[in-house]
Amino acid sequence: MPPNVSGPQSACATPPAELLELRATPPRERADAARNRVAVLEAAAVLFRERGVDGVSMDAVAAAAGVGKGTLFRRFGDRAGLATALLDEQERGLQEAILFGPAPLGPGAAGQSPPAGDRLRAFLDAYLDYLLAHLDLVRVSETATSGARYRIGAYRFWHRHVSLLLAGRPDPAAAAHTLLAALGAEHVTAVRAEIGAERLRTATRQLADALLP
């Protein structure tokens, strides 16, 4: 177990402005557009749960939501866009906990920010909980096109948060990418089938400990 690290951290009494800028925010939209969005996402959530993400067509979502296919495609593009939209609320909740929540995931009380190592392990546990609960959706959102995962706004938030927690390393940005690679949905889907979720969680914690300054 590495020693506790009390150097630069991504949460304190005032969260870093760069993380505040990267966090997901709810869309601003007209009332009718908001109603359509809610109807589509509710229908998609039901269909994905019943049939699996790969077994649901955009036509089926449009029919279940009672909206035109053109409306659906213009708003969400494809199943990956739908998956990303469904995940937004969950991602916002995790980001808010990181920025403002109790320690060790969040900064805790003013002047009592926990060590970076504790925060990093708490993030990994919370992220894995989120990922395993929504694995199919995350996989679709991350693999829609080559490199899609790294263009998602949430990834930039996770990467910057982990980079700040690893700030004592010579190249924390590269180390953060290395750690987050172990949390890719496609990787986790394959590895969990072989070794199980708990062994995966343990191995990810061990990797984090090895990367801490």
Results as ranks from 00 to 15, higher is better:
G70V: 15
D171V: 04
E42D: 11
R169C: 08
L179A: 11
G66T: 01
I195N: 07
L72V: 12
L200K: 00
D54Y: 06
R79S: 15
A39E: 13
F48C: 08
V191W: 03
T145K: 08
A122I: 12
R160A: 10
F157E: 06
P170Q: 14
A110P: 05
P115D: 12
D118G: 06
L207R: 08
E89G: 02
G196E: 04
V67E: 10
R119I: 09
E50F: 15
A197K: 02
E198C: 07
E186W: 02
M1D: 08
P2S: 09
L87F: 04
A33R: 10
G52A: 15
R121W: 07
R35F: 07
D125Q: 14
N36Y: 08
A103M: 03
G106P: 02
E89T: 06
R121K: 11
D209Q: 11
T202P: 07
L19W: 05
L166Y: 03
V140T: 05
D88Q: 12
F123E: 08
R119K: 12
V191E: 10
E186K: 00
E29T: 05
R37Q: 11
H177F: 15
S141Q: 06
A175S: 15
A210E: 11
L86Q: 13
P8T: 14
I98F: 01
A80W: 03
G101C: 06
T143P: 00
A63R: 13
Y150K: 11
R192P: 04
A64S: 14
S10D: 10
S57I: 14
A63N: 11
G55I: 10
A185D: 00
N4A: 12
D209W: 07
R149T: 05
G70D: 14
A85S: 12
R51I: 11
R149N: 08
D32W: 09
A208C: 11
A144C: 02
R205S: 09
I98W: 01
L99F: 03
A43D: 05
N4T: 09
L20W: 00
T145Q: 13
A24D: 15
R169V: 09
P107V: 03
L41A: 12
V138W: 03
R92Y: 13
E142W: 00
V53M: 08
R74S: 13
L165A: 04
L124G: 06
Q95M: 14
A203K: 07
R199V: 13
E89K: 00
D125W: 09
S57H: 14
G7P: 06
A181H: 11
A197P: 01
F76W: 08
A83Q: 03
L165N: 02
A154R: 03
F123P: 04
V56A: 09
A63V: 15
R205P: 06
E194T: 05
A154D: 07
R75S: 15
E42W: 01
V46I: 14
T178L: 15
A103W: 01
H187W: 04
T71C: 03
A11R: 04
T204P: 00
R75Y: 10
P8V: 13
D129H: 10
G111H: 01
G93M: 10
A103K: 02
L72Y: 05
M1R: 04
H159I: 13
S10A: 12
N36C: 14
V46F: 11
R139H: 03
I152N: 01
T202I: 15
D209M: 12
R35A: 11
L180G: 09
G106K: 02
R156S: 12
Q95K: 08
